[in-house]
Amino acid sequence: MKKFLYKNVKETATLVLILIVFFVSLAVRPELLRSASMANIINSILMWMPLNLTMCMGMMMTVIIKDIDLSIGAEVALSGMVAGIFWRDVWLVKMKDTNEVVIILIGFAISLVVGVLLGALNGFIIAYMQIPSIIVTLGTINAYRGLTYILAHGKMITNYELPPHLADLSAKGIHIGPLLVPWLILIALVIVVIFFFVLRYSHFGREVYAVGSNRTAAHLRGINCKKTELMVFTITGFLAGIVGMMSASRFGYVNPQQTGNGLEFVVISCTIIGGVSVSGGSGNVIGVFLGCTLLGTVNTMISTIGIPGTVQKFVYGIVIVLALLIDKAVTTMQRNRAMDAKSARKEATA
């Protein structure tokens, strides 16, 4: 048990933090304990999570290979916008009679293709031209967002121009007692499970960890580091395409300014508190899932117990900084422990 806790110290800490946040806010506002408001709170946490959780999977991989992708917010906006323009200008004008499911699927396909292309462009510049990812994605965040503005012509895609049943993904779902679990969170959970198995058991997943922990060693071992890097960014783009559709369904609009705005900071916070080390090579899906849950809980509780929404940005920032410090402390501790063990062994042999 002790060994397990020691090995998973970050995940355990996150879990404890989630419980602390939950119970502290219940202590501040005991009236939340009624089942109706409890269901409301959990529902709003569940509504907050799918977008961030899906995006976290991509961000997690980029951080594991010691890169970072700042452009996800803009990728989400651009892919959602292109699909929205398809719905507005093609579906509503020419294909009015087509089955709606087909239309929604075509929109999804367009969004995914756009996302993949954008991600692949990022990955190509980063991997094959050997430019630090932070600078490339800082450039593409502006390029993609600017392109969204140019395509949008200053107009947003409104609720009326989206297929009416797209909103069902977030408004309907499985009822468990008074609790509604929307389809979106189920989609996100499926993606999380897929990534859990891919990263843990597949060839590609192990390559990602190998490239992250020691690039030279991975290269000498025969792993095509550049290809892995390209793949990681492409998959992130793919996920951004999914999130573009999710956000259209969740918010009922695609807006060049609002959609995906600041998403990258939330996702980076989730990933880093989820125990993914910025020095690369470590981090797992369960930790990121817990990190995302923690931030969702904090976010919901802030508004539930009546702290004004203006502190949100500050909280995200401070969370990133604190998580970095904790990460540093944990790695230093573990390294010192390992060194102690080594020197103890040396003394024993001597």
């Binding site: 700042l70 900071f265 980076i268 502190v311 949100q312 940005k313 500050f314 909280v315 995200y316 920032g317 401070i318 969370v319 990133i320 900084v321 970095l324």
Partner: peptide, 9 residues
Amino acid sequence: IGTQNVFRG
């Protein structure tokens, strides 16, 4: 990236 949010926050 973190402190950017902290200061503006």
